[in-house]
Amino acid sequence: MANSATLTTDSKQTWGGGKSPFSVSYGKLMMWIFLLSDAFTFSSLLVAYGFVRFTFTGSLPNTVVKPFAHLSHNFVEEMQKAGLFVTERWPSPELVFNHFPFLHGIHLPLMFVSLMTFILIFSSVTMVLAVEAGHRMAKKEVENYMILTIIGGAAFLGCQAWEWTNFITEGASLSSNPFGPTAFAALFFIVTGFHGTHVLSGVILNIVIYLNVVNGTYEKRGHYEMVEKVGLYWHFVDLVWVFVFTFFYLI
Protein backbone atom coordinates (compact mmCIF):
# COMPACT_ATOMS: atom_id res chain seq x y z
CA MET A 1 0.00 0.00 0.00
CA ALA A 2 3.11 2.13 0.11
CA ASN A 3 2.63 4.00 -3.10
CA SER A 4 -0.97 4.29 -4.19
CA ALA A 5 -2.09 5.99 -7.37
CA THR A 6 -1.82 9.71 -7.48
CA LEU A 7 -4.01 11.11 -10.23
CA THR A 8 -1.91 13.13 -12.60
CA THR A 9 -3.46 15.18 -15.33
CA ASP A 10 -0.11 16.32 -16.62
CA SER A 11 0.81 13.97 -19.49
CA LYS A 12 4.50 14.72 -19.11
CA GLN A 13 4.30 13.37 -15.60
CA THR A 14 2.30 10.33 -16.74
CA TRP A 15 4.64 9.31 -19.54
CA GLY A 16 7.82 10.79 -18.13
CA GLY A 17 9.12 7.41 -16.98
CA GLY A 18 9.82 6.06 -13.55
CA LYS A 19 6.23 5.04 -12.95
CA SER A 20 3.48 3.04 -14.62
CA PRO A 21 1.14 5.14 -16.80
CA PHE A 22 -1.55 2.53 -16.12
CA SER A 23 -1.04 2.64 -12.39
CA VAL A 24 -0.51 -1.12 -12.26
CA SER A 25 2.64 -3.14 -11.80
CA TYR A 26 4.41 -4.71 -14.76
CA GLY A 27 3.35 -8.21 -13.74
CA LYS A 28 -0.32 -7.34 -13.52
CA LEU A 29 -0.30 -5.52 -16.86
CA MET A 30 1.30 -8.56 -18.48
CA MET A 31 -1.31 -10.82 -16.89
CA TRP A 32 -4.00 -8.66 -18.53
CA ILE A 33 -2.25 -8.88 -21.91
CA PHE A 34 -1.96 -12.66 -21.54
CA LEU A 35 -5.65 -12.91 -20.65
CA LEU A 36 -6.49 -10.87 -23.75
CA SER A 37 -4.60 -13.35 -25.93
CA ASP A 38 -6.26 -16.24 -24.11
CA ALA A 39 -9.64 -14.59 -24.69
CA PHE A 40 -8.84 -14.62 -28.43
CA THR A 41 -8.00 -18.33 -28.27
CA PHE A 42 -11.24 -19.19 -26.52
CA SER A 43 -13.18 -16.91 -28.87
CA SER A 44 -11.77 -18.74 -31.89
CA LEU A 45 -12.77 -22.09 -30.41
CA LEU A 46 -16.27 -20.90 -29.58
CA VAL A 47 -16.67 -19.21 -32.97
CA ALA A 48 -15.54 -22.47 -34.62
CA TYR A 49 -18.28 -24.20 -32.62
CA GLY A 50 -20.82 -21.60 -33.78
CA PHE A 51 -19.68 -21.98 -37.38
CA VAL A 52 -19.97 -25.76 -37.41
CA ARG A 53 -23.30 -25.69 -35.60
CA PHE A 54 -24.75 -23.20 -38.08
CA THR A 55 -23.86 -25.47 -41.00
CA PHE A 56 -26.14 -28.19 -39.60
CA THR A 57 -29.90 -28.41 -39.53
CA GLY A 58 -31.19 -27.27 -36.13
CA SER A 59 -32.45 -29.72 -33.52
CA LEU A 60 -36.02 -30.95 -33.66
CA PRO A 61 -38.26 -29.89 -30.78
CA ASN A 62 -38.23 -32.62 -28.18
CA THR A 63 -41.69 -34.09 -27.66
CA VAL A 64 -40.38 -37.43 -26.42
CA VAL A 65 -39.13 -36.89 -22.86
CA LYS A 66 -40.16 -34.32 -20.27
CA PRO A 67 -37.83 -33.16 -17.45
CA PHE A 68 -37.80 -35.59 -14.48
CA ALA A 69 -39.16 -38.41 -16.68
CA HIS A 70 -37.56 -41.84 -16.39
CA LEU A 71 -35.05 -42.77 -19.07
CA SER A 72 -34.95 -46.27 -20.49
CA HIS A 73 -31.56 -47.98 -20.51
CA ASN A 74 -31.44 -47.86 -24.33
CA PHE A 75 -32.36 -44.16 -24.46
CA VAL A 76 -29.73 -43.32 -27.11
CA GLU A 77 -30.99 -46.04 -29.51
CA GLU A 78 -34.56 -44.86 -29.03
CA MET A 79 -33.58 -41.28 -29.84
CA GLN A 80 -31.71 -42.51 -32.93
CA LYS A 81 -34.85 -44.37 -34.09
CA ALA A 82 -37.02 -41.30 -33.37
CA GLY A 83 -34.77 -39.30 -35.70
CA LEU A 84 -33.53 -36.96 -32.94
CA PHE A 85 -29.97 -38.32 -32.98
CA VAL A 86 -28.98 -38.42 -36.67
CA THR A 87 -25.70 -37.38 -38.27
CA GLU A 88 -27.31 -34.67 -40.43
CA ARG A 89 -28.89 -32.90 -37.50
CA TRP A 90 -27.34 -31.07 -34.53
CA PRO A 91 -28.59 -32.79 -31.36
CA SER A 92 -30.41 -30.83 -28.68
CA PRO A 93 -27.97 -30.47 -25.72
CA GLU A 94 -30.98 -31.14 -23.49
CA LEU A 95 -31.06 -34.78 -24.62
CA VAL A 96 -27.29 -35.28 -24.47
CA PHE A 97 -26.29 -33.81 -21.10
CA ASN A 98 -29.15 -35.04 -18.95
CA HIS A 99 -27.47 -37.06 -16.21
CA PHE A 100 -26.92 -36.31 -12.55
CA PRO A 101 -24.76 -38.32 -10.12
CA PHE A 102 -26.73 -40.76 -7.94
CA LEU A 103 -29.91 -40.00 -9.92
CA HIS A 104 -29.29 -42.42 -12.72
CA GLY A 105 -32.09 -42.98 -15.23
CA ILE A 106 -33.89 -39.66 -14.68
CA HIS A 107 -34.03 -37.01 -17.39
CA LEU A 108 -32.40 -33.97 -15.72
CA PRO A 109 -31.16 -31.60 -18.40
CA LEU A 110 -28.89 -28.70 -17.35
CA MET A 111 -28.97 -29.64 -13.65
CA PHE A 112 -25.46 -31.01 -13.30
CA VAL A 113 -23.85 -28.29 -15.37
CA SER A 114 -25.68 -25.64 -13.33
CA LEU A 115 -24.16 -27.14 -10.21
CA MET A 116 -20.73 -26.88 -11.86
CA THR A 117 -21.45 -23.23 -12.69
CA PHE A 118 -22.38 -22.47 -9.07
CA ILE A 119 -19.20 -24.17 -7.84
CA LEU A 120 -17.05 -22.07 -10.18
CA ILE A 121 -18.83 -18.79 -9.34
CA PHE A 122 -18.42 -19.50 -5.65
CA SER A 123 -14.73 -20.28 -6.00
CA SER A 124 -14.37 -16.98 -7.83
CA VAL A 125 -15.93 -15.22 -4.83
CA THR A 126 -13.55 -16.89 -2.36
CA MET A 127 -10.65 -15.92 -4.63
CA VAL A 128 -11.63 -12.25 -4.69
CA LEU A 129 -12.12 -12.38 -0.90
CA ALA A 130 -8.54 -13.72 -0.62
CA VAL A 131 -7.36 -10.73 -2.69
CA GLU A 132 -9.32 -8.38 -0.45
CA ALA A 133 -7.81 -9.97 2.67
CA GLY A 134 -4.39 -9.61 1.05
CA HIS A 135 -4.89 -5.85 0.81
CA ARG A 136 -5.38 -5.81 4.58
CA MET A 137 -2.29 -8.05 5.04
CA ALA A 138 -4.52 -10.56 6.88
CA LYS A 139 -2.42 -13.67 6.35
CA LYS A 140 -4.73 -16.14 8.08
CA GLU A 141 -7.77 -14.99 6.08
CA VAL A 142 -5.87 -15.22 2.78
CA GLU A 143 -4.91 -18.80 3.68
CA ASN A 144 -8.50 -19.79 4.43
CA TYR A 145 -9.96 -18.24 1.30
CA MET A 146 -7.21 -19.77 -0.87
CA ILE A 147 -8.02 -23.22 0.55
CA LEU A 148 -11.71 -22.72 -0.29
CA THR A 149 -10.78 -21.61 -3.81
CA ILE A 150 -8.59 -24.68 -4.32
CA ILE A 151 -11.41 -26.94 -3.08
CA GLY A 152 -13.86 -25.25 -5.47
CA GLY A 153 -11.51 -25.72 -8.41
CA ALA A 154 -10.89 -29.37 -7.55
CA ALA A 155 -14.64 -29.97 -7.16
CA PHE A 156 -15.26 -28.46 -10.58
CA LEU A 157 -12.59 -30.69 -12.14
CA GLY A 158 -14.15 -33.73 -10.46
CA CYS A 159 -17.55 -32.80 -11.93
CA GLN A 160 -16.03 -32.41 -15.36
CA ALA A 161 -14.31 -35.79 -15.11
CA TRP A 162 -17.69 -37.34 -14.25
CA GLU A 163 -19.36 -35.61 -17.19
CA TRP A 164 -16.64 -36.73 -19.61
CA THR A 165 -16.78 -40.31 -18.32
CA ASN A 166 -20.52 -40.37 -18.93
CA PHE A 167 -20.19 -38.98 -22.43
CA ILE A 168 -17.33 -41.35 -23.32
CA THR A 169 -19.17 -44.38 -21.89
CA GLU A 170 -22.09 -43.58 -24.16
CA GLY A 171 -19.76 -43.83 -27.16
CA ALA A 172 -18.66 -40.26 -27.81
CA SER A 173 -15.08 -39.51 -28.80
CA LEU A 174 -13.13 -37.16 -31.06
CA SER A 175 -14.05 -39.37 -34.02
CA SER A 176 -17.46 -40.80 -33.15
CA ASN A 177 -20.72 -39.54 -31.71
CA PRO A 178 -23.89 -41.56 -31.24
CA PHE A 179 -25.87 -38.34 -30.64
CA GLY A 180 -25.36 -36.81 -34.08
CA PRO A 181 -22.56 -35.10 -36.01
CA THR A 182 -19.05 -36.17 -35.01
CA ALA A 183 -18.06 -32.50 -34.81
CA PHE A 184 -20.46 -32.08 -31.87
CA ALA A 185 -18.48 -34.50 -29.69
CA ALA A 186 -15.10 -33.35 -31.02
CA LEU A 187 -15.84 -29.70 -30.27
CA PHE A 188 -17.25 -30.59 -26.86
CA PHE A 189 -14.07 -32.43 -25.88
CA ILE A 190 -11.72 -29.81 -27.33
CA VAL A 191 -13.44 -26.77 -25.82
CA THR A 192 -14.35 -28.16 -22.39
CA GLY A 193 -10.98 -29.93 -22.35
CA PHE A 194 -9.12 -26.70 -23.06
CA HIS A 195 -11.16 -24.95 -20.37
CA GLY A 196 -10.57 -27.85 -17.96
CA THR A 197 -6.82 -27.58 -18.60
CA HIS A 198 -7.09 -23.93 -17.61
CA VAL A 199 -8.91 -24.86 -14.42
CA LEU A 200 -6.25 -27.49 -13.66
CA SER A 201 -3.39 -25.03 -14.16
CA GLY A 202 -5.37 -22.51 -12.09
CA VAL A 203 -5.67 -25.00 -9.23
CA ILE A 204 -1.93 -25.74 -9.42
CA LEU A 205 -1.11 -22.01 -9.38
CA ASN A 206 -3.49 -21.52 -6.45
CA ILE A 207 -1.72 -24.30 -4.53
CA VAL A 208 1.67 -22.69 -5.21
CA ILE A 209 0.35 -19.32 -4.04
CA TYR A 210 -1.24 -20.91 -0.97
CA LEU A 211 2.08 -22.48 0.02
CA ASN A 212 3.83 -19.14 -0.43
CA VAL A 213 1.22 -17.46 1.77
CA VAL A 214 1.69 -20.11 4.46
CA ASN A 215 5.47 -19.70 4.24
CA GLY A 216 5.09 -15.96 4.71
CA THR A 217 6.72 -15.07 1.39
CA TYR A 218 4.27 -12.23 0.71
CA GLU A 219 4.27 -11.11 4.31
CA LYS A 220 8.02 -10.52 3.95
CA ARG A 221 7.58 -8.91 0.53
CA GLY A 222 5.17 -6.39 2.01
CA HIS A 223 2.26 -7.04 -0.37
CA TYR A 224 0.03 -9.88 -1.62
CA GLU A 225 0.03 -8.90 -5.28
CA MET A 226 0.76 -12.46 -6.47
CA VAL A 227 -2.65 -13.44 -5.08
CA GLU A 228 -4.19 -10.70 -7.24
CA LYS A 229 -2.39 -11.81 -10.39
CA VAL A 230 -3.39 -15.44 -10.01
CA GLY A 231 -6.84 -14.18 -9.02
CA LEU A 232 -7.15 -12.43 -12.39
CA TYR A 233 -6.39 -15.72 -14.11
CA TRP A 234 -8.89 -17.57 -11.95
CA HIS A 235 -11.70 -15.11 -12.68
CA PHE A 236 -10.91 -15.35 -16.36
CA VAL A 237 -11.41 -19.12 -16.20
CA ASP A 238 -14.81 -18.46 -14.57
CA LEU A 239 -15.58 -15.90 -17.30
CA VAL A 240 -14.85 -18.40 -20.06
CA TRP A 241 -17.07 -20.95 -18.34
CA VAL A 242 -19.99 -18.49 -18.53
CA PHE A 243 -19.74 -18.66 -22.33
CA VAL A 244 -19.03 -22.40 -22.53
CA PHE A 245 -22.14 -22.90 -20.37
CA THR A 246 -24.16 -20.62 -22.66
CA PHE A 247 -23.10 -22.08 -26.01
CA PHE A 248 -22.74 -25.76 -25.18
CA TYR A 249 -25.59 -26.27 -22.76
CA LEU A 250 -28.13 -23.43 -22.77
CA ILE A 251 -28.50 -22.80 -26.47
Binding site: M1, A2, N3, S4, A5, K19, S20, S23, V24, S25, K28, K220, R221, G222, H223, E225
Partner: peptide
Protein backbone atom coordinates in the same frame (compact mmCIF):
# COMPACT_ATOMS: atom_id res chain seq x y z
CA UNK B 1 12.55 -6.86 1.06
CA UNK B 2 9.64 -4.48 0.94
CA UNK B 3 8.86 -3.68 -2.68
CA UNK B 4 7.58 -0.53 -4.21
CA UNK B 5 4.16 -1.32 -5.71
CA UNK B 6 1.94 0.76 -7.93
CA UNK B 7 -1.74 -0.06 -7.96
CA UNK B 8 -5.17 1.52 -8.01
CA UNK B 9 -6.93 1.49 -4.65
Amino acid sequence: HIEHLEHTE
